[in-house]
Write a protein that binds this DNA or RNA. Structure first.
Lengths: 230, 230
DNA sequence: CAGGGAATGTTGACACAGTCAACTTCGAGC
DNA sequence: GCTCGAAGTTGACTGTGTCAACATTCCCTG
């Protein structure tokens, strides 16, 4: 993975680290897990890699560049988790979607600080295209599953991207609420997190299911201009 | 509004500020809007209030206490925005819910940094009960609207808290995605943000609508244990 | 095989942040 | 009128991001 390993196997010397970039990402990730988002520090990562304070600047232009690399790594892992969940239900697209949702929430619960970093203000996708791509890559799996569901007649027709977007909002919203500890105790007491994911996903998937023309659905006016402002 | 005005009208002197606490919250909010979340600083807020660096410690034990006060204020405003939206559709509970969702997303888009702070790692609800209460108070309006919808037969029966939670996930997820600039360009290009809110809300509300027993909904197995791990 | 860039690390320094201790000033109640 | 506590100030400490100047090592070219 590292450009060093790909090269002629430079040996680490006392002076040159060998693969500092990867070591810094690892150290920063460790800090993230143990100390939380505010505990991640450029100097701390350097210490963790056994290197001086300014060394990171040979590999990252910025603190936020380091954080972006960490976040990108997180999205890679998240994508793998989602893909694995999808594979376990290759036959049933709806079950696959549910499993994917649970995988996301599980990932968030297992690595709260990491998930926070991935979707937080510390790194803006705009400034780090690779991060953006990694994020989109992870969530794009949802659209694929939606499409399979449509082909199987389990999900109503329509733009898969638009439909998966609604699902994305739900799942990400739940994950973020969990990670930010904003789920009220009276909810979490009764129902464990994964069941909440199932619940939220089911509510949405029922909305996405094909259905005979329903009076209630059509009664809803398409757009009311008299909504609240601000 | 300020406790100063309520009291015997202490006058501000050169030395004593009069109502530093409120001034600090205002200054911090201004910093948040202009400089972003990372630009909010205790010293900066003190400067903004025309006061020395250590003065805030007479009113806030901590930087995070200041941030919590700012976030709490944000939740108060958010609750008002939601309540106003609900009032504009007193007759149609489903339209009210849609309007509430749009109000939240609008708020988030208008004050991105503020919304981020309100739901971010900077302040943990656990450490600031008043913040937690403000957040719950804002979102509780959803459950009320759901209940009205049930009474009107527009929303299927069930625990209003559980149903509103699914809606909460959707709305908050969309708001957070917007605020974090994670909505892919190919989505935002085609559809403006408020329409996305309508879309997501509609998908979910259709899932929450009362419906004749449907085969597709029942076919979904209640829980599959073979989901992905990690 | 030699030698010279280019990478990669190191040291030292600067500005600024959060935070605290010690001191000062002001308003209110005995 | 005087004192006491609340509210503000000054000065200092540590830790952080960042940079410039210097040191070391790798690897390519002759």
């Amino acid at each position: 993975m590292s450009r060093r390993a790909a090269a002629t196997a430079r040996r680490r010397t006392a002076y040159h680290h060998g693969d500092l970039r990867a070591a810094l990402v690892t150290a920063a990730t460790a800090l993230l897990d143990t100390e939380g988002p505010l505990g991640v520090t450029l100097r701390g990562a350097a210490r963790g890699a056994g290197v001086s304070q300014a060394a990171p600047y040979r590999h990252f232009s910025d603190k936020s560049a380091l954080l972006a690399a960490v976040a990108e790594d997180g999205f890679r892992r998240l994508r793998h988790a989602i893909a694995r969940a999808a594979r376990t239900h290759a036959r049933d697209p709806v079950a696959a979607l549910r499993a994917m949702a649970i995988a996301v929430v599980r990932f968030a619960a297992a690595h709260p600080s990491h998930y926070r970093l991935m979707s937080g203000p510390a790194v803006r996708g705009r400034d780090h295209p690779a991060l953006r791509d990694a994020a989109v890559g992870a969530w794009a799996l949802l659209a694929g599953a939606i499409e399979r569901g449509q082909r199987a007649g389990r999900i109503r027709p329509g733009d898969p991207v638009a439909l998966s977007f609604a699902l994305w909002c739900s799942i990400h919203g739940l994950a973020v609420l969990a990670v930010d500890e904003q789920i009220p105790a009276n909810v979490l007491k009764v129902v464990p997190l994964e069941q909440l994911a199932e619940h939220a996903t089911r509510c949405l998937l029922e909305g996405l299911a094909p259905r005979p023309p329903s009076r209630a659905a059509r009664r809803a006016r398409p757009a009311s201009r008299a909504t609240a402002r601000q």
